[in-house]
């Protein structure tokens, strides 16, 4: 496994991409983490109010667990991982093999359009991290 060495430039680019796409579209918080639960980028309006460290660790474990569940039913992985709450929703998306993008948004934002944007953003972020 490779170590991540993040330069300020890469992080800034990633943050700009996330801000420009998701936060501008009304998403509350977007967290970019790695598979081990490290936080690479934390963007959004109430990003300070969320216990991001716990969220990242649980999200990484959650994705690991669901991908095991997927294998148990003969799937490679699930393409949609989403939890719906009363006022808040959370969507998890894989960025390549190593990274995870967590998106937290309210009732007024459509999951379908968040998914579209996350799909677009995935390519951009992969491009940024793979140079």
């Amino acid at each position: 496994m490779q170590d991540f060495i993040l330069t300020a430039e890469i992080l800034e680019k990633a943050r700009n991409a996330i801000e420009g796409s998701l936060i501008q579209a009304g998403v509350r918080t977007a967290l970019l983490i790695d598979g081990a639960g490290n936080i690479l980028s934390n963007c959004g309006h109430d990003s300070d109010e969320i216990d991001a460290i716990s969220l990242a660790a649980l999200a990484a474990a959650n994705l690991g667990a669901t991908s095991q569940i997927a294998k148990l039913i003969g799937e490679e992985d699930f393409s949609l991982l989403f939890h719906k709450g009363k006022n808040g929703n959370i969507h998890f998306g894989r960025i390549g093999d190593e990274l995870i993008l967590i998106t937290i948004f309210g009732e007024d934002v459509s999951l379908g359009l968040v998914r579209c944007r996350v799909t677009d953003l995935t390519d951009t972020l992969l491009h940024i991290f793979e140079g």
Binding site: A25, G26, S110, G112, L113, V114, C116, R117
Partner: peptide, 11 residues
């Protein structure tokens, strides 16, 4: 152009 539509469009 789904990426240009406001995310609240379905709403």
């Amino acid at each position: 152009a789904p990426q240009n539509v406001s995310t609240s469009a379905p709403k």
